[in-house]
Design a binder for these strands. Structure first.
Lengths: 244, 244
DNA sequence: CGACGCTTTGACACAACTCAACAACCGTGG
DNA sequence: CCACGGTTGTTGAGTTGTGTCAAAGCGTCG
């Protein structure tokens, strides 16, 4: 049986799913909506917010400050859950927008509860996914708090490469990345102008080339040293610490 | 019946707990360990890590970088869960230390599962607590990424005041805070020296005085404006889905 | 063709860091 | 009781990483 969705593919990398479990995942993703690039799925403070699974395309979650500054929290990609964290909260506490044209499946909280009750292994897999999402936020806090612009940017692209390859959207050294420099800046706590300078430096140092929506990684090992990247928090296997 | 523990008190602010539920909470906290100030509960990468409830005292969770830099993620206080996020992971992905002498109750993952099965309302309350913890990490990411040193520090103390008052450890305008300037720096992504200057400015502007482990808030409204603080992500009121 | 979204570059400003020194406080032991 | 070392707080002077402002380049699309 083929895995089907990116969501199933990701969970399947954590525990091997039975046909029944795959069916259930297919069922809750049966209905899906096309979203136009730039449209908003959830607005911070919204009362009747939903939850989604992102089937295809890129999204971002973020918080706006009153004066226009914003911080991007995460970039959900194919197979990722959107807004599940707040599913028992009355109001959403961050906003979600899609960055590209995208395909999303709305999910009812009833589905989530049913899943946990009828398919406990799937429930565990969902908890794993949630804990992985949180680990990514933590890792980004570390980046923004304690890594300089170069380290931070390198770290970000390595994490992205790892996540994308888990759902079959990246090869060893290359992947599509539809993020512009303003978006990168808001994610990494920098300005777009400074991101531009850093990207130039990464290119000149023959570490990463990022042009026209495509990232090419030239020297993985040197990059890993610079970024201080350990993939333990992302991967389902081999969760041990790597050497410094 | 009295509430008993800070943990119960916090959850009780979210949903009113029945005597049975309170009993269960008391049961899992029956055993507790005294920890000496500075000792470590969990080390990043540790394989046989446990989970805890912090009964009294202050702790912190953090990640170290190979070169000695570190980022503090959160400050668990009385009533908070420690290490629950990773309870189904094979290795811990951040470290925990206690900052003061403290009292902790070790919790088995079996207890957590039993809780969810036998006391579903309690399970929901735990999910609420977890989602609140994550919201705090997110809010800190916003601070470190997009607020300047003054805003960040003000925001931090306001959040702390709110959390402490929920477990009865803060009055309107004053609370104990055993954090030194190095610790504050590692939490806020600044240096201890700069924290010192910011604290001086907060004092001179008659906003906050922080001396000898005691924080006094002088002008809550002005502070809230500076920090851009909204307590929605912390508060237990006005969270729906569980009116019954 | 012009308009627009995004990238690139330079000159300059400033918030936060570094280094260096000293002061205040605290527990310990003589 | 004081002397002491260690930890924490305070301050100043100079440096640097990143932000700000301004302008130009370059595709793409209507």
């Amino acid at each position: 049986m083929s895995i089907g969705s990116a969501f199933a593919m990701k969970l399947n990398a954590f525990i091997e799913l039975s046909p029944d479990e795959l069916n259930f995942l297919a069922k809750i993703q049966a209905r899906s909506l096309k979203m136009k690039r730039g449209s908003q799925l959830i607005q911070e403070g919204q009362v009747d917010h939903k939850a989604f699974v992102l089937q295809a395309g890129w999204a971002c979650s973020y918080k706006d400050l009153p004066d226009g500054r914003r911080q991007i929290i995460s970039f959900p990609i194919a197979g990722d859950c959107v807004g599940w964290r707040d599913f028992q909260r009355s109001t959403a506490n961050h906003s979600f927008s899609v960055l590209t044209d995208a395909l999303v499946s709305p999910v009812q909280s009833a589905d989530i509860l049913e899943c946990i009750n009828d398919f406990p292994r799937l429930g565990v897999a969902l908890i794993w996914a949630a804990s992985r999402d949180e680990a990514m936020v933590v890792e980004r806090l570390v980046s923004v708090g304690r890594r300089n612009a170069m380290e931070r940017t390198a770290h970000f692209f390595m994490e992205l490469a790892e996540r994308l390859s888990l759902v079959g959207l990246a090869t060893e050294a290359e992947f599509e990345c539809p993020l512009n420099q303003f978006v990168l800046a808001d994610a990494l706590g920098l300005t777009a102008i400074h991101i531009n300078r850093i990207l130039r430096q990464l290119r000149e140092d023959e570490l990463i080339t990022f042009r026209k929506g495509r990232v090419r990684i030239h020297d993985l090992n040197r990059l890993r040293r610079i970024a201080g990247f350990c993939d333990g928090y992302l991967s389902s296997r081999n969760q041990g610490m790597l050497q410094a």
